[in-house]
């Protein structure tokens, strides 16, 4: 019997999508992949294809135009999948709360497993969130 979940945990691939954040969390995600923090030692690779991804990193308060794209990307990621909301504005809307073109956080549209706070989230926090996501991925 193939223990697919055991191996899944060893090489979780990450899909990153920005739904209207200020770029701050996005460059911190890039910094996570850089040698100082080196997310790749956990087996994490940044991929551009939702069909190969296991972890969905989302930043931003969900603008109206990103609404349908986020839903499409989410539905294209195969199960099991984990959604990590990076940044205060992704969790609750943060500083962008109640602005006219935003939806106050992505959990109004898709289920979120891990909330990473901070404006902007530091790389340490993002890595913590991904490690947490790996635990959840194993249980799913």
């Amino acid at each position: 019997m193939l223990h697919i979940k055991r191996f899944l945990k060893k090489s979780p691939w990450v899909l990153h999508y920005n739904t209207g954040s200020c770029n701050g969390c996005d460059i911190e995600i890039l910094a996570c992949l850089s040698p100082r923090y080196d997310l790749e030692r956990l087996g994490v690779l940044n991929t551009g294809n939702p069909k190969q991804a296991d972890i969905f990193l989302v930043t931003g308060p969900l603008t109206h135009r990103c609404h349908d794209r986020l839903l499409q990307l989410y539905s294209q990621i195969p199960d099991p999948k984990v959604v990590v909301a990076v940044g205060s504005c992704t969790c609750t809307g943060g500083v962008f709360k109640d602005m006219y073109n935003v939806n106050n956080g992505i959990d109004s549209l898709i289920p979120v497993d891990v909330y990473v706070p901070g404006c902007a989230s530091s790389p340490e926090l993002i890595m913590d969130g991904i490690v947490k996501a790996l635990e959840i991925l194993e249980g799913k």
């Binding site: 739904t19 954040s21 603008t63 135009r65 109640d98 602005m99 006219y100 073109n101 935003v102």
Partner: peptide
């Protein structure tokens, strides 16, 4: 226009001038 949030309006209606800088 994917990331249009409406900051210009919020700066004049939601936040006071001392907060707008942040």
């Amino acid at each position: 226009g994917f990331v249009h949030r409406g900051i210009e309006k919020a700066c004049t209606e939601k936040f006071e001038y001392k907060q707008v800088g942040y």
